[in-house]
Nucleic acid binder design. Sequence first.
DNA 1: ACCTGAACACCGTTCAAGT
DNA 2: ACCTGAACACCGTTCAAGT
Lengths: 185, 185
Amino acid sequence: MPAPPKTSDEDVLRAARQVLERGGAELFSMQDVAVAVGVRAPSLYKRFPDRNALLEAVAEVVAADLRDRLLEADRAPTARAALSAMAHAYRAFAHRLPHAYQLLFSDRGAAGPSVGARAAAAAPVLARLDELVGKKRSLLAARLLTAWLHGFVSMELAGAFRLGGDVEEAFRYGLTTLLGALKKA
Amino acid sequence: MPAPPKTSDEDVLRAARQVLERGGAELFSMQDVAVAVGVRAPSLYKRFPDRNALLEAVAEVVAADLRDRLLEADRAPTARAALSAMAHAYRAFAHRLPHAYQLLFSDRGAAGPSVGARAAAAAPVLARLDELVGKKRSLLAARLLTAWLHGFVSMELAGAFRLGGDVEEAFRYGLTTLLGALKKA
DNA sequence: ACCTGAACACCGTTCAAGT
DNA sequence: ACCTGAACACCGTTCAAGT
């Protein structure tokens, strides 16, 4: 009477990421995930308590993924060059997986990554800022840099930069200006 | 046979703003709006084509509201002081009406303000940046400043600044650093 | 153990019928 | 003209029943 598993937690999570990337969190449905793994919707509740928990699990994986991309980009010898490369990697990640990216900043209560996962993703940037501006001010500098980064890419994704001008140039300009303004006290 | 109106477009819009502010766009339902204006849900479709159109109409009103708040704040004699006041007004607006604020940056396709309404809201900031950095670079500067502003407040609203440190100080630090970095070429 | 169909409460939306 | 109840298609979620 075992009734062999037709799927696995990992399978469901993988399918959930795909379903999310197709239509965003708003259109994300348990039914679609179920179809994608070849099971009926109620079966998913054996693995994840509810839709929100499944989205949270996705957010967790996405945050870890972003962290890996940032670490990969962190190769340059100087802090400034490394931060520039990480900023470009960050933006590329958001462009490649826009809906997953937005999940990372969904508002309180709604699905989002844990504080720990978010902190882990931010860690590589923070480490380089320790180098650039000193431990005393690196948290302030990180909030400036990540706020700009997040704001820029999420405005891009929302289609807010449509009044002409070169968006690539705007990104380079912003990054250069910010990195130029960050110095040891 | 007239069947007198039980409500009006303005009434529905006002109720929609309230319903939105209670639970955010995700929980926003036509049924709740209908109850709030004392009508049945199908009646709303005589005034707005669908849920998304109603949310778009709300976004339009919210963008105009934000614009008014920025214009009010634009009183200081110098460009830098005016921009600082507008930044604080911007953040205060987002804190006061977090769900309405988030609607302004909901992603492409989903409800959001028109390009024109967004441009109108950004205009006061752009005008002051013309003054500060010159017409040539004011669009680049606006994209830097608004990206940071939006990123900062939306990270706050998403609960992303929970690793200690003083968030107020981070806002002042970011604003001061940015305004300090923006100069005529 | 895991999966399923049936059921419930809820939505958005359409439409014929009421006044 | 505007409003309504009924209906349809769709969800999330629970649960008893299957193997």
